[in-house]
Design a protein around this nucleic acid. Structure first.
Lengths: 338, 338
DNA sequence: AATCATCATGTTATCGTTACCAGCCCCACT
DNA sequence: AGTGGGGCTGGTAACGATAACATGATGATT
């Protein structure tokens, strides 16, 4: 029963052809006569043959893997990026090899090394901050590298991202234009949360540019920052700076958490406290009141990255000429800031 | 510059040892003298050597991959299962190879076939419904198979799951005991949503067992069923069956959507309409009012599956003796059903 | 002193597929 | 009839690591 699984050679023997012909029969473009191919595929099915990619990968020096690292899978934004990336790549015959860094660049380094051993055709990392060793590994890997979700100052290779700083600036202006003055920022205090700290820095810069006090900063600690952290932060805010008129949160999740805290305390949103989020999560479009947010195009980042990788691998670009694709975050004004 | 990457043979030559010794130097348990190993590792670093798993995989017939299929990555429940699974496996030196079926068993079949070509050491699938061909592929793969999130009547191999039917029965009883009589069910009408339909069937059975009318069934269509679908369904429910006292939703997401619709219409929850969800999502614990739900132990399913796979692969079980690990879903009573 | 286990290393063959290079047959054109 | 090209097939070697077995040196044991 449990003999070892059949190989192409077994099929070849059964049909009376060479293994080479069997190999060809499995590739759609190669030249094999119709009847031979059918006989081979039938025999393969009969024998319960399963193609062995590991051997093919070794011989052809192609794995059709694309390595991807994200901070966390439990985040709708990153998940959406991965989904679109995965869809786009699978359409091109590529398969994702996914790893989580847990928002830790040391973990990222380990992960990158581990993933590179699998000989992916390209690698996508989230963010532009890496350990020196990770940078070196990526640079020397000899495959296309794409950094996403940020616009690194010194990109390793390609980039598909947007400016978190600018995006938050947009949000600050939105509130300032609406007449809010005492505006707080929630989150972005942990230095392993690069996007969060960028947003916080962007908040401070934009507030100062608008001539407003930028000192209302509420800490949430290390990522992931979810709804609960947002609620806790709002409680702090209401206690420490009760005259605050508006709070800009590091993400829609924390904004929603902040909203629930207001609801529990009978604080009306937006009349007593206006709220802004980030990321255009589903929840912000449906909760009551709906949340003003920033669409950072998480899905499009994934889709565009897939397209870019396809183009590069199929030689549609000058090789060695890194591309930077920049998305412009768009503010979505909703009920929480009217 | 772009010569081809160094191999173990190159390191061997540089150090003056055999390739075999180099190979051994990279495995922690093998016997290589301290100094030789150090010299090898140093040379490897100098040359920018990256271990080639594809070759090792072929020769040793071990990939250290575990294939996993889930319906969707954009679902906090499945994501949590995958996270714990991934953590547990990586602790054992195994790496996940993930694929999404989009709630489609035909897509699952394609995916399973594709994943098996990569020669994983084990495969985890979500749910117990598969195409005949997929069943055959899984059975003949010669590796441990784990079905999760359900309790299939005819398991292919191992199972780590719970009874959706029983879980919803629990929920129905909770509402019935609290005095609710006109109870509706939202979702679970699409037949590619196996867990959803099971929950709906469980609802009908439990309602009948309680002597209650089980005909208040609101359709949501095909999965994924999110917040928006829940809101739409609640609108339908309020229009078609306005005297309904309580609604049990196929998940916390749809329950939250239903809640928002109530809020927009000024319908008090739970006074005018009680709500129940499923899955113990973060949102249900924090929204106002908090949602009564069922903890299905999504994370534990992943953790336990990782443990099971570890045990099986390391021969800690009678081989060929499939295990079934059954979780008992627990009702969490919250504000939405007081 | 002889024997044997242990350690560190080397040699050889192989995992299953495919790149590369031929070779054959048949038909279409000169 | 001769030449050429395209379609189909086969033989051989190789991808880069390691399993399996073998070897020499060292030290422990009797």
């Amino acid at each position: 029963m449990s003999r070892k699984p059949p190989t192409m050679a077994d099929i070849a023997k059964a049909i009376g052809v060479s293994p080479m012909t069997v190999s060809r029969a499995f590739k759609s473009d190669s030249s094999v006569s119709q009847e031979t191919r059918e006989a081979i595929l039938r025999a393969a099915e009969d024998l319960g043959y399963v193609f062995d990619s590991t051997a093919a990968n070794l011989r052809s020096q192609k794995t059709d893997f694309v390595a991807v690292t994200i901070p966390s899978i439990n985040n709708a934004n990153f998940a959406e990026t991965v989904r679109q990336l995965s869809d786009g790549l699978s359409r091109r015959g590529l398969q994702i090899l996914l790893g989580y860094t847990n928002y830790d660049i040391l973990e990222e380094e380990r992960l990158v090394e581990q993933l590179l051993r699998r000989k992916p055709q390209a690698i996508v990392v989230t963010g532009g901050r890496h350990t020196p060793r990770a940078r070196k590994l990526l640079s020397n890997a000899g495959i296309p590298v794409v950094e996403t979700w940020d616009l690194p100052e010194q990109p390793i290779g390609h980039v598909v991202g947007f400016s978190n700083t600018l995006a938050i600036g947009e949000m600050v202006r939105h509130f300032a234009d609406a007449g809010y003055r005492r505006i707080a920022f929630i989150g972005g205090d942990a230095d392993n949360d690069t996007r969060g700290t960028e947003r916080r820095a962007g908040f401070v810069a934009a507030m100062q540019a608008a001539g407003l006090d930028a000192s209302r900063l509420i800490a949430c600690g290390a990522p992931p920052i979810g709804m609960r952290e947002g609620a806790v932060a709002m409680a702090h805010l209401l206690q420490s700076l009760p005259d605050t008129e508006a709070a800009i949160c590091v993400s829609d999740l924390s904004a929603f958490g902040a909203l629930t805290e207001c609801q529990r305390r009978g604080i009306r949103v937006p009349q007593d406290m206006a709220l802004g989020g980030f990321g255009n999560y589903d929840i912000g479009a449906i909760c009551v009141p709906t949340l003003t947010t920033i669409n950072a195009f998480a899905g499009d980042i994934g889709a565009k990255t897939a397209e870019l990788i396809g183009d590069v691998l199929e030689g549609r670009f000058e090789p060695g000429l890194p591309q930077t694709i920049r998305f412009t975050p768009v503010l979505i004004g909703r009920e929480s800031s009217r």
